[in-house]
Nucleic acid binder design. Sequence first.
DNA 1: TCCAAAAAGGATATTGACATCTTTTTTGGA
DNA 2: TCCAAAAAAGATGTCAATATCCTTTTTGGA
Lengths: 146, 146
Amino acid sequence: MFLSKSFGYALRGILYVALKDTEGRKVKLGEIAEKLSVPRHFLAKIMKLMVQEGILSSIKGPYGGFLLNENTLTAKLIHLVKITDGVEQFNTCVLSLRKCNSKNPCPLHYQMLKLRDGMLAEFSKTTIGDLLNQETPDFIKSISVI
Amino acid sequence: MFLSKSFGYALRGILYVALKDTEGRKVKLGEIAEKLSVPRHFLAKIMKLMVQEGILSSIKGPYGGFLLNENTLTAKLIHLVKITDGVEQFNTCVLSLRKCNSKNPCPLHYQMLKLRDGMLAEFSKTTIGDLLNQETPDFIKSISVI
DNA sequence: TCCAAAAAGGATATTGACATCTTTTTTGGA
DNA sequence: TCCAAAAAAGATGTCAATATCCTTTTTGGA
Ligand code: FES
Ligand code: FES
């Protein structure tokens, strides 16, 4: 449903680190990939992107791993979309006709506009921290496949 | 934005036929493909699917082509989605984790649920005829690439 | 100083959506 | 009866997202 697998991996990966990074514990790629059932090397690239974007930190070498930084919890979902899928989709015509435009609307334009704007608004305001604070009975389960 | 190109081709194709099929005129594949700038042979398969699904008719041979039938104008958008993309996406988790389920929600479940249900409702009620009746200044332009 | 562990980087493989090309079937009219 | 036009069917090609594998860089500790 319009979000790529890469986005899902990014979100689940960063959430997993946020859950496990308590008292300076670093979280290793292998652990994340295994616990979330995500292809390890593919996840590596996505984690690296988040590090490069500054919303996550990493340390190389033995005793290294991924850890939160001051931007992680306030990072917005739209930022993850930017990293993985590109944010253009929010102003591209759903029929792939052209740049979406109310001056020259496609037959689905008005039906989709409100839905898409709702989604954009949601993704622009929701942060990683917000997701962690939702009262989910078993959060770790919620980001796993089962 | 979550709708496949195939869906767009199907929708634009059926709308084009609806626009041009006046007084029993049949619309040829080549004309549709050319006017809508859609790959001809790919469109052929999608048009055929719509015919097989009974929401469009076709006649082979010289003077053949595509034409409306009694189901065309009342066909719902969700039907086109079924034909081209499959309707599973409306009850699949946006993070591709599992069958979407409020008993075992993913971190984005509640945010997405309302948006997705809105979309499903919209697609379940809107018909091809509805789209044709929207007052768009130049409808033919609205289904073209430009 | 060296080693092993871990992230980073880069090369290759797979897959499914999308696109193109060819052959077959159907059919109205000369 | 035959031909040409059109849809239907099927075979093959392309490309980007996804996945896997291998190599390089970094670094804490023995
Ligand atoms: S023009 Fe197609 S969604 Fe706006
Ligand atoms: S469980 Fe993920 S969207 Fe419902």
